[in-house]
Each structure stands twice: as structure tokens, then as C-alpha cells.
């Protein structure tokens, strides 16, 4: 740990990240299994001419890019928020079981065919599942910010979520439905439409706003709960706002993309040293960082796999898992 602190201004950091985000966006437009002329496609789109290039751009590439962007932002932001709330650098929607329970909520909606009832049924199912898990985490860890309690609670909630999903799959009407659900759960942003983006985006935006509203509260929490209370923060109320915010955006994200893990773990960790660990500043920067990371991960999948595409969630888990182990080893001595 460095002793003397060094600061980067918000302007520097945001402009660097935005530049990277723009670069990722334009790069992503050009990457995909089929070779299309982007300029022509864009022109066709604007002039409303039917062409293969325009259809691929509008119905394949754009939904995929937007989903990677919004879901990456959601995961980065909620990772930073949960870490601030639990005062623990290992908290992350996937690790503490939020993603799994959101998936459960979405699977139940799928399974009972509720998704036809209303456009918001699927993200709402994800939201309710996520909310349940965050409340459980809260009851289990309480005021305790130790790693051990958090990880144990995460294991328990993940196990419950998986078991319930397995239960639903067990009664799946046919093997194809089961296969579909399993593939969906592995996490991916391919084969989605702009309608999927439109359905989930409102929930994500509400979640982002609720989380960003709690920035100062997270700063105060870095001195502990009683101190935050004595500084005039309404602990009960703000915790709920934050928890509902995380549940809303993660629930919506998972209900569209399935489980994509570890983004919320890796990104805040990479950004913290640049901002002297301030929880509030971490939020916005982690959102952009998460978006960038997920967009590049998704591009890597498309560029490097031939035939059957690797699932995005599988790739982030393969890379994120060892990173998680490294973080545990690194923080073990400091936090236990």
C-alpha cells in the first residue's frame, strides 16, 4: 500500500474513460461474424432503405453493443455500491448471490409463461429475485463487515438460488426449454433485440439513479455505521434506497443477459487507486469502466471464437475467478 497519496481529477479520469468507451463503441460496430460496410449500413438506416447491412447493424450489432454497455455499467456500478455498503472489497452481485437470485426470478417468470403478461414481467421477476437476495445478505452479515461472514452468506444464498433454479429446471416441460434456460443462464448479450434493451433500460436507469443518490452516504459509511448515523444519515432509509437500486438494475440486467460475473469485482478494484479509495467517486467511474470491460470482453469472444460462440458469462468467470482468488489472498491479512 502506498503511503503518500496521489490524485487525479475527475475531469482527467472521466475524459480518459469516455475516450476509451467511444473507441470501444466504434470498434464494436466493426466486429462480428459477417463482414458489413458500416458506413453504408448507417446511411441505409438513416434513409430507411432496406439492405442486409442495415438489418445486421440495427438488429444484431446495435442491440448487442448497447446491452454490453448498459449491463457492464450496471455491474460495475452495483459492484462499487455493494462494496461501499458492506465495506468490503469482495462484495459483488455474482459472488454474494444477487445475480443467481435474479436469474431465479427471471426463470420463474419464463417457466410459468408470465413474460407474455406484461412487457416488464421479466425484468420485474429479476428485480424481485435480486431484492430477496440482497435483503438476505443484509440479515446474514448485519453490522459485521468481515470477509468470512460475507463469503459464507454469499455461498449460502448462491446455493439456495441454484437449488431453486435446479428445482424449476427439474420440472421443465421439455428438454429444449431446459437447454434454453441453461444457455441463457451462462450469460450472453448475443441474439438480443433492441426491444430487450428497451424493456430493461428503464429498470437499469432507475437503479443507477438510486445508487448515485447514495454516494455521500457511502463516503460516510467508510467511518462505520454509528458514525454515519451521527453525521445525520438515515441509515435505514438510505440502505433501502441503495439495496433497491442494486436490485433494480442487476435484476433487469440479469433477466436480459443471464449471469455475467466478476465485472463488479474487477472494475472497482482497478479504479480505486486512482481516486484514493473514495466510495462516492468510485460509483460513476466504475459504471463507465464496467461498460468498457464488458464491451471489450464481448468483442474478444466474437473475434476469437469460430463456430459456436463462447458465452460471455463463461469468459468473465474464467478470467474473474482467478482474480477473485488473488483478491482474497491480498486482502486476507488486512481485513480478517
Amino acid at each position: 500500500m502506498k503511503d503518500q497519496t496521489k490524485t487525479f481529477s475527475n475531469l482527467q479520469l472521466y475524459s480518459a474513460l469516455f475516450a476509451l468507451l467511444l473507441f470501444a463503441f466504434f470498434l464494436a460496430l466493426h466486429i462480428g461474424p459477417s463482414d458489413i460496410d458500416i458506413e453504408k449500413a448507417a446511411r441505409d438506416l438513416i434513409e430507411q432503405r432496406q439492405s442486409v447491412d442495415a438489418i445486421i447493424l440495427f438488429e444484431v450489432r446495435l442491440p448487442r453493443i448497447f446491452l454490453a454497455l448498459f449491463i457492464g455499467a450496471t455491474l460495475g456500478l452495483s459492484g462499487a455500491a455493494l462494496q461501499g455498503l458492506l465495506r468490503n472489497p469482495l462484495a459483488e452481485p455474482g459472488i454474494i448471490g444477487v445475480s443467481n437470485c435474479a436469474a431465479l426470478g427471471a426463470v420463474i417468470v419464463f417457466y410459468f409463461g408470465l413474460s407474455g403478461l406484461a412487457w416488464y414481467a421479466l425484468p420485474l421477476g429479476g428485480l424481485l429475485g435480486a431484492l430477496l437476495s440482497v435483503i438476505l445478505i443484509f440479515l446474514l452479515t448485519g453490522k459485521n463487515s468481515s470477509i468470512v461472514t460475507l463469503i459464507l452468506a454469499g455461498i449460502a444464498i448462491n446455493a439456495i438460488g441454484s437449488a431453486m433454479i435446479a428445482l424449476v429446471l427439474n420440472y421443465a416441460p421439455n428438454p429444449y426449454a431446459m437447454q434454453e434456460i441453461v444457455f441463457w443462464m451462462m450469460g450472453s448479450v448475443s441474439n438480443r433485440s433492441l426491444q430487450d434493451v428497451a424493456i430493461s433500460l428503464p429498470f437499469m436507469i432507475v437503479g443507477w439513479i438510486l445508487i448515485l443518490y447514495c454516494g455521500k452516504f457511502l463516503n460516510a459509511l467508510s467511518l462505520g455505521e454509528d458514525t454515519a448515523k451521527s453525521m445525520g444519515f438515515n441509515l435505514q432509509k438510505l440502505r433501502w434506497i441503495l439495496v433497491i437500486g442494486v436490485a433494480s438494475c442487476v435484476g433487469a440486467a440479469v433477466s436480459v443477459s443471464g449471469n455475467i460475473g466478476f465485472i463488479g469485482l474487477v472494475i472497482p478494484h482497478l479504479i480505486r487507486p486512482f481516486i484514493n479509495y473514495e466510495p462516492k467517486r468510485l460509483l460513476g467511474l466504475s459504471a463507465i469502466g464496467g461498460a468498457i470491460l464488458l464491451m471489450f470482453s464481448d468483442m474478444a469472444i466474437q473475434a476469437f471464437s469460430s463456430g459456436d460462440e463462447l458465452k460471455l458469462g463463461v469468459v468473465t468467470a474464467l478470467v474473474g475467478g482467478p482474480f477473485f482468488l488473488y483478491l482474497i489472498l491480498k486482502t486476507r491479512s488486512a481485513m480478517l
Binding site: 463487515s145 455521500k216 467508510s222 467511518l223 484514493n276 466510495p279
Partner: peptide, 19 residues
């Protein structure tokens, strides 16, 4: 009383202005 993150001293003192 302790800080849960390795914050710079000045930033900790700034928290006093939060109210």
C-alpha cells in the same frame, strides 16, 4: 474509530463537512 478504506487523511477530515 477507524476508516474502512485506506483513505487520505485530508479526505477523512473532509467527511466532517458532510452534515
Amino acid at each position: 474509530a477507524k476508516a474502512h478504506w485506506p483513505l487520505p487523511v485530508r479526505d477523512v477530515v473532509k467527511l466532517g463537512r458532510l452534515p
